[in-house]
Each structure stands twice: as C-alpha cells, then as structure tokens.
Design a protein around this nucleic acid. Structure first.
Lengths: 295, 295
DNA sequence: CATATGTTTCTTATGTATAAAAAACAGGGG
DNA sequence: CCCCTGTTTTTTATACATAAGAAACATATG
C-alpha cells in the first residue's frame, strides 16, 4: 500500500555515490551509507540488494565490491521518487492555478481523490496542511471552499510580508561587524551577480535564489511564525509563476537588481536606506504579482 | 464508524426549542428547524424520529405536535456531542500541558492513538492541523517532535501579536465617526464593565471575552493571515490557563482594566495614546504568560 | 406553484488493513 | 568494547470500508 518512493530515491542517489568510486573498490559501511543517503539502514540494505541483483555490486562476507558502473537508464524516473502526498500537492496546484477553480468553488474530497487517482485519506491530509496558505477554508461536516487566488489574497499576503521583512531588515542596522551574517550576505550578492551575468540562460533559477535570500534576511532573529509564513510566500511564487510565465525574464532581472540594492542598504547599516530599499522591492514584487493575477 | 455526535448535539438543541413551545403546539417545518439547528434535514428528521420514539412529539400527517415536555435528563451528555476530532484536541492538549511531554519529546502516532483510544487516521489529521500552532514539527518518514511550550515560544508568539495588534489598533485613529465599529466598541466596554462588576464570581468568563475583544480590533481591516494567527493565541490562552490557574482572578482583573484603558485610547483617536495602551497591555500579557510558563 | 415531506444518492468522518520504512535488538569479528 | 551486519519489532504512508450526515431528487398537498 505504501509506495516505495524512498527506496527509489535512495537507489538513484546511490548510483551517484557509486559513480565517484572505481571498479573493484569497496563500498562504505551500511551505516555510513545511511548517513549519506539520509534514510534508514533498512532502506540502504534494500538498495544494496537491488544493486547486487543488477550485478552492479557483489556482496562478499561483510563487504561489497563494485563490479560494474551503473548506467543512467537504470535510474528510476523522477515521478516514481515522489511520495503520493507530494504528487498530490502538484496535482492540486495545477488544478487550482490552471483555472479549473474559480473563487467560491466547493472542493469535494471524493471527487479530487478520483480525479488524482489517490485515496481520500491523502486528499484530506493534504487539505488540512494546505489550509495554512489561506486559500481554502473548511466547513463543518461539508467539504472545503476554494477562496480564490485573488487580488485580495495577494494584498493580504503582502501586508504581512512587509511587516515581517521590514522588521528583519531593520535589525541588520544593529548587527555587530563580527556577525557571520555579513559573510552570508556577501555570498548572496555574489550569487545574485552571477545569475545576473547569465540572466538570459538562467532566469528560471531566480525563484529558488529569491526564497533563499528572503529566508536569510528573516533568519537574523528566528521566529517560527515568520519562518512558517515564508513557506506561504515560497509556495505562491513557486507555483503561481510556474503557470504564468509572462515577462518572466524581465521580472526576475528587476527583482535581482532590487535585491542588490537592498544588500547594499543592509551593509550601510542605515535604517532609512534599509527601509527605502526594502519597501521599494516589496512594492514592486506586489505590483508584479497583482498584474499577473489580473492577467 | 462515524459517530453520531451531530445528531446528539442537534437533539439537545431541539430540547431547548421545544421548551419554548407549549403542549399541543405544532412544531416548525423540517426546513425551518434545519436552519435553526444548523444541520441538514436528514439530521432533523432523525432528531424528530427520536423525539417521537420518546413520546415527546406525535407525528401526524404532515405535522408534528408536542405531546409532553422533554426532561433535562433526556439530554445526551456533553462528551457524546463532541466529534472524535474535537475530543482528540482536548486529549492532546492535556497530554502536552500536563507535562507528560518535555521539549524534544518524539510524538508517536500509533502510541497516541492507543492512548486516546482512537484511529491513527484521526491522530494524523489532528497533528497536520495542529502544526500551524508552531508547537510541533514533522520529520520525513518519522513522526513528529514536540518543540515545547517554552519561553521562546511565548516570546515569538508575542512578537507577532504585537505587530499585528498595533497595526490594527493604529487604524482606529483614522476611522470615520460613522463607522459601525464604534458601536461594537461601546458594547465591548459594557461587557467588560459588567464582568468587572461581578469579577469574583465570573472571572472564568474572561478568556472568551478576551478573544472576542482582540478579534474585534483586528477585524477593522480583515486579513486572513492575522485572523488565522488569532486562533493560535486563542488556543494558547484557552488551554494553557485551563491547566494553570494560579492568580487567575487577579490576572483577569488586570487584563480587563487594561482593555478598558485601550478602549478609551481607541476612542480618543490619538495614535500615541493608542500605541501606549496597546503596548502596555501586550507587555503585561506577555509577562504574565512567561511567569506562568516558568511556574 | 410554492413549500412540505418522503426517498435516493453522494460525501464526509472514522475505523481497519498492510506494505514500506524506521528503529530496536542480537550476535560476531577486529 | 566498538562497530558491523543479520533479524525482529514497531511505526508510518497509503488504501479501503462503512455508518452518519448532507444534498439532490421526487412526490404530495394546500
């Protein structure tokens, strides 16, 4: 009943590990592999058994030798490495953002389960977790309502985002010279400059960098509620822009420049400059999102 | 498998409706009752059947007559009117706050299901919803960790609360005279004064009034994320103080006076006074919570 | 024809089952 | 005695089953 996606992901990862080793070489211990792969030893043993069955490794008493290099086509396809619950997330987002759902649509657990080909349990679990994004609402004894990916959603989202990020950004002004954050900020600038230099080819990498940048800023003074809110923002940008590619390159380039300006302001330790740069970026991000929601 | 708590709650409510009517009188239509009881007609019919079986009403063709008044002991006990998922919430809170759990404790779904006598499905669903309170964290393929009802939890909570409430309170200064909010504020003051006058007997009613007061303030400019955060606050106060009654009367009296001061400040429309009153109350609430967490 | 009740169908809440994964336990060799 | 592998036990992820409840449909009555 449970899918073996953990095994398949570990199997693929193991292929990469073996590629770094030579024929005839001995594999690390099960425990070492467990730590490297981030799974339990049970799964490691299953992977090793699979490798042995394929003739890639040979199990001798208490050790395993590499017999031949695995081929790339022996990897399991990406889809099979995603837990059902992760697949459901993607399916649901697509259903939502492709426009099958307008504000006020009732969400029917059974119907979704049928449509996505999964058990209702999974759908319920997903919806319960998804609730925190503020896009759906539960009604007692009667399913959920989709509230819509609307302008007011974007406005409410950005009202909170502004409070949280201004709060964190301002704190930079009081940070001592020795703080390790300044190193990370330097690295962040480098990453931005690198992406900017190659923007025509790599503009799709921005979404992840954006998330990392904003998480770095809020991390100066950790607060679990702010961090949890970052998930909301990340979700919105990740999925919304995945289905809305208009002006993507230009949009991302503008954001990168705003980030660079904010980095400079942070380093100046001048609260007024920080405020200005931060607000400028958030306003522009908000307008971009609003435009994109309105088509 | 599903419990009939909806029916039992509706049955109890129906008893109250019948008490307002006289013997021999005709009951409202099924549809009217449906609206009054807030359940489906299916449930209304089940309740009516139950009443008929007990001889309380008599079903004639197309109408139902009251034959005798139901007695209070015919009510279903409170516990039987709570959905399993609601019972689980209480059990879990008790488990958590009674101190069976210290920070870092691993939460075992199976064990909790056994301990609470419910299905694992329910536990999972509950934990998924409960995640938003910031007290537990999920680990891939391996249960949950309880992060602890600690001082840092309280501090992080109040940092957000302060941002959100100051934001709303300040907005009052710009509200026009004609806004209906002022009436509600008046009513709120009356409710506070009433409770204060009878504080020795009714100090336990404060928790609910507190929640209503803070929700009223934030409602001036609705934001789903702020509203959702109010749930976190309400949960903390509702449950935490349920198991921690030290100085309850005095604590609530202080809070009521602070609320009254804030109401006055709001009505003055002076941003500086509002800021001061709001911050004063939040600081005091925070200190009270911290003291109570530290024992 | 509008509204009420009777009937049928669909959905949700909750329990149970089971393969996959994790964790705990146990013996063995350096 | 520590770390390694083999084995057993426990837990989680997911599917499926079903009574309670909601909604839709049908029929009757004033």
């Amino acid at each position: 009943m449970r899918t073996d996606t953990t095994f398949k992901r570990a199997f693929n990862d193991m292929i990469e590990i073996i590629r770094t080793l030579d024929l005839g070489e001995e594999l690390p211990s099960e425990n070492a592999l467990r730590a490297q792969l981030g799974v339990s030893r049970t799964t490691v043993r299953k992977v090793l058994a699979g490798m042995a069955a394929r003739g890639i490794i040979m199990s001798e008493a208490h050790r395993r030798i590499i017999r031949k290099q695995p081929r790339q086509k022996e990897r399991y396809p990406k889809e099979e490495t995603l837990a059902i619950s992760e697949q459901v997330e993607t399916s649901f987002m697509e259903w939502m953002l492709r426009g099958d759902a307008c504000p006020g649509t009732e969400i029917n657990e059974t119907e979704l389960a049928r449509k996505f080909g999964v058990a209702t349990t999974i759908i319920r679990e997903f919806l319960n977790r998804f609730q925190k994004y503020g896009l759906i609402e539960k009604r007692q004894n009667a399913g959920w309502v989709f509230k819509g990916f609307t302008a007011s959603f974007a406005l409410e989202l950005f009202e909170i985002r502004e409070m949280f990020e201004m709060r964190s950004a301002r704190l930079f002004a009081t940070l001592p010279d020795g703080s390790p954050v300044w190193k990370q900020i330097q690295a962040m600038r480098a990453a931005h400059l690198e992406l900017l230099a190659d923007i025509d080819a790599r503009f799709q990498d921005f979404s992840e960098l954006d998330s990392r940048f904003h998480r770095l800023i809020t991390a100066v003074a950790p607060n679990r509620f702010i961090e949890s809110f970052q998930d909301v923002i990340a979700m919105v940008f990740h999925y919304h822009y995945q289905w809305n590619k208009r002006d993507e390159r230009a949009r991302n380039e503008v954001a990168i420049r705003e980030h660079l300006a904010l980095i400079e302001a942070l380093e100046s330790r001048n609260v007024a400059s920080i405020d200005r740069a931060c607000r400028l970026h958030l306003t522009s991000a908000r307008e971009t999102l609003l435009r994109s929601i309105m088509q």
